[in-house]
C-alpha cells in the first residue's frame, strides 16, 4: 500500500514537472518576440516536457509493452525534435529580412562560395549526392 502511494507521488511529481515545462514553453512562444526566440521556448517543451510526462506514464504502467512504446516515443522525440528545430531555424535564417538588425552573425567560416547559378543545367542541378 505504501509502495503504491510512493509510486503515485513519484508519478505525480514527474507529471507536475512536465506540465510546468509545457506551460513555460507555451508562455514563451506567446510572449517572446522573434521566431528564433520562440523556437528555443518550443524546443524546451518538446524535449523536457515530453520526457517528464512520459516518465510519469511509464511509472504508472510499470513494465509492459505499452511502456516500451512510450519509451520509443520519447526516443523518437529526442531524435526528431532537434532536427525539426534545425530546419525551422534554417528557414528563418534564409527568409527573415530583418535578421541582420537583431543579430550579428559571421559567415566566413561557412564560406559563401556558391558561384554557379542554380539554373545552370540539368547535370549540375541533379548532383544532390554527398
Amino acid at each position: 500500500m505504501i509502495l503504491e502511494w510512493v509510486r503515485f507521488i513519484l508519478a505525480g511529481g514527474c507529471f507536475a514537472v512536465g506540465i510546468v515545462f509545457m506551460i513555460l514553453s507555451v508562455f514563451g512562444v506567446n510572449r517572446l518576440h522573434h521566431a528564433l526566440n520562440r523556437m528555443h521556448a518550443a524546443a524546451m517543451g518538446d524535449t523536457l516536457g515530453i520526457l517528464f510526462v512520459f516518465l510519469g506514464l511509464m511509472l504508472i504502467r510499470g513494465f509492459s509493452m505499452s511502456s516500451l512504446k512510450l519509451f520509443l516515443v520519447i526516443l523518437f522525440f529526442w531524435v526528431a525534435s532537434p532536427v525539426s528545430g534545425h530546419m525551422i531555424s534554417r528557414l528563418e535564417a534564409m527568409t527573415d529580412e530583418d535578421l541582420g538588425e537583431m543579430a550579428v552573425l559571421e559567415f566566413d567560416a561557412i564560406g559563401a562560395d556558391g558561384e554557379e547559378s542554380p539554373i545552370a543545367g540539368e547535370e549540375e542541378l541533379e548532383h544532390e549526392s554527398v
Binding site: M39, G45, G49, L57, I88, T95
Partner: peptide
C-alpha cells in the same frame, strides 16, 4: 511569419501527442 506558425503548429502537435498518451 510562416516560421512562427510552423513552430506553433509543431508545439500543438507535441501537446496533442502528450494528451493521447495520457
Amino acid at each position: 511569419g510562416i516560421s512562427d506558425r510552423i513552430i506553433a503548429i509543431n508545439m500543438t502537435g507535441t501537446m496533442v501527442i502528450t494528451a493521447i498518451a495520457i
